[in-house]
Design a binder for these strands. Sequence first.
DNA 1: CCAGCGTATCTGTGATCACAGTTATGTAAT
DNA 2: ATTACATAACTGTGATCACAGATACGCTGG
Lengths: 222, 222
Amino acid sequence: MTQIADINKIQEERLGHKIYLELKKKLIVGELMPGEGLSIRKVAEEYKVSAMPVREALRQLAIEQALISAAKKAYRVPDLTAGQAADLFFVRSILEGAAAEIATANATKADFKLLEKLIVGMNKYWQAKDAKSFLFTNYQFHSHITSLSSNSALQAMIDGIYLRTGPWLAHGITELVDLDAWKADHSGIVNALRARDAKTVRRLVEEDAYWGVSIYSAIDNT
Amino acid sequence: MTQIADINKIQEERLGHKIYLELKKKLIVGELMPGEGLSIRKVAEEYKVSAMPVREALRQLAIEQALISAAKKAYRVPDLTAGQAADLFFVRSILEGAAAEIATANATKADFKLLEKLIVGMNKYWQAKDAKSFLFTNYQFHSHITSLSSNSALQAMIDGIYLRTGPWLAHGITELVDLDAWKADHSGIVNALRARDAKTVRRLVEEDAYWGVSIYSAIDNT
DNA sequence: CCAGCGTATCTGTGATCACAGTTATGTAAT
DNA sequence: ATTACATAACTGTGATCACAGATACGCTGG
């Protein structure tokens, strides 16, 4: 526990990791659109650092498939095909479902409270048509449940998937899809958690992972 | 398809990626032991390149959790606790089981032939007590089945787990456990594949992911 | 007005240096 | 002989430069 905390502390002190976290949030939230280019020198100037830490951050994102990197060509946000996105959501449903099933036994009253607070937030941002805040709160909701599995390897992998599908979702939400058509009711998940009904939790979480796909499935079948 | 091929080709041309692949294989095969340190300058000298590509390779491995990185301290191979290893094998069983279930429908006669050839190889290396070759062949066997799922995201994640458990397994095999106590019969998997029995394939693959844990469970319960 | 081409500017990559913090070493004092 | 301490050798990190390949732009010719 303290070991992990130390590692995080150290990572926060590394310049490249700070840049990485900044860009990561932008990707999850949809502040960077599919196809958009990222240049080492430009980003370096933006954050007032040298090229070295930025170079490291972009490479890390490329390793995590959150950016595309071709030789001597600018890094850019991937433009996922519907098939690639479906693959990712499939993996997420498997992993997040398993994580949620384990989490059911570990959730405390404080967790229920926090999750319900996040649901309120999501509804608020939904009404306000604030896609960015909505997506981030949605991410926090799922991320918290996953963390209750206390399997850090599992959590990290799920996290990586949100990173990759973030721009894709944001693009769909802000440009292609009517928000009202989207069902994203998480209260059923919290209810099942309260009832300690692990199987139902797993099923609901698995199903929820598929609304991302449904955004495009009606529009794009490539 | 050609896009992916191009990317791979480019990656092969990048110096840092070559170093990465070299070290990756060493980790999977167990040529690098838990706790062992890796220095940028030492590795650079070993491969006759500058520090820059090595630095990139080590950082990538650290990102993939295949190496531990603390500030201003040497990179080193993680020494997993039994709990951490169990977490990884748990995730692997979920992912690899799902992948194998999908793969069942896609496997061709050529695949059966290749898999059986790999089994023969494993038995040979087993007899010869060649742990390194045995582990690599085992990896190839599982990796091939996973690839038949044609879900590259899924495959990459499973690959990452082998990378992280490799040194741990090798350490157990070469130093702690009697080889004869280890059951690792993969012929049942191939038979189920031939019978197109997806559920059985999934179950067998899931079960197989647990022999790694059993190596230590009898020895170390921390 | 448009196509073709050369050039100028952009891109990531590799190499090298400076620096600060860590680890190891060897010496001196008890 | 053992402990304490200074110092030397190591570590990763950040910055900067050189270079080659990719891209974009503008010019020149039709």
